[in-house]
Simulated assay, not measured.
Amino acid sequence: MKRLRTYLNDLVLRAVVALQVFAATEPVRLRAALTSLVLALGVLVPALASQEVAESVAGVLAVGLPLAVGESARKKVTPAE
């Protein structure tokens, strides 16, 4: 049992490190993936089927995601002077 727990812990840690590396090297793709995930949740979660709820959630996330991830992405995409 301890071996299984150790293996699962190792697997989770590897996934977290891989996500951090992906976020550091590909911030634009991460932002696109997060946006796609939000859109998929809007389709799959029945509570978001209401137009008012979907608009408010999408509006908040459309502003929040670029602010959260966008600064590092802007530095990578903007040409150096």
Rank of each mutant, 00 (worst) to 15 (best):
V53F: 04
A49Q: 07
R3K: 11
S36I: 02
V21L: 14
Y7M: 08
L30Q: 07
L19E: 15
V53C: 00
Q20R: 14
P66F: 05
P46F: 01
A33H: 05
A49T: 03
T25S: 02
M1C: 06
G42R: 04
V77D: 00
E71S: 11
E52C: 00
L34K: 05
R74C: 07
E71W: 13
L39A: 15
A32I: 09
D10Y: 12
L61A: 10
A54F: 10
P66Y: 02
Y7N: 01
P79F: 08
E71R: 12
R14K: 13
V21F: 03
L61W: 06
T78P: 00
A24L: 14
A80H: 05
A32E: 14
T78M: 14
G70Q: 02
R31M: 15
L13S: 13
Q20Y: 05
A47Y: 01
R31G: 10
V16G: 00
Q20D: 13
A54G: 00
K75C: 01
V12E: 04
A68R: 09
D10T: 12
T6I: 09
L61H: 07
V57F: 05
V17M: 10
A49K: 11
L8M: 11
A80Y: 02
T25I: 05
A62R: 11
V21C: 04
A24E: 07
V43T: 11
E52Y: 06
V63L: 12
V38I: 12
A62D: 06
L11Q: 12
S36F: 13
A24G: 05
L4K: 04
G64W: 09
L61M: 14
G42Q: 07
V28H: 01
K75P: 01
G59T: 13
A54K: 13
G42P: 04
L4D: 09
L48E: 00
L34Y: 13
V17R: 15
A18N: 02
T6P: 00
A80I: 03
P46W: 02
V21A: 08
V16S: 08
Q20G: 14
E71L: 15
S72G: 09
S56E: 08
P66H: 03
A68G: 10
L61D: 05
L37C: 06
V16N: 07
V38F: 01
V16A: 11
E55S: 03
A33K: 06
P27I: 08
R14L: 06
V63D: 10
R5A: 13
L13E: 14
G70F: 03
R29W: 14
N9K: 03
A80F: 01
L61I: 12
L39D: 10
Q51F: 07
L44P: 00
E55A: 14
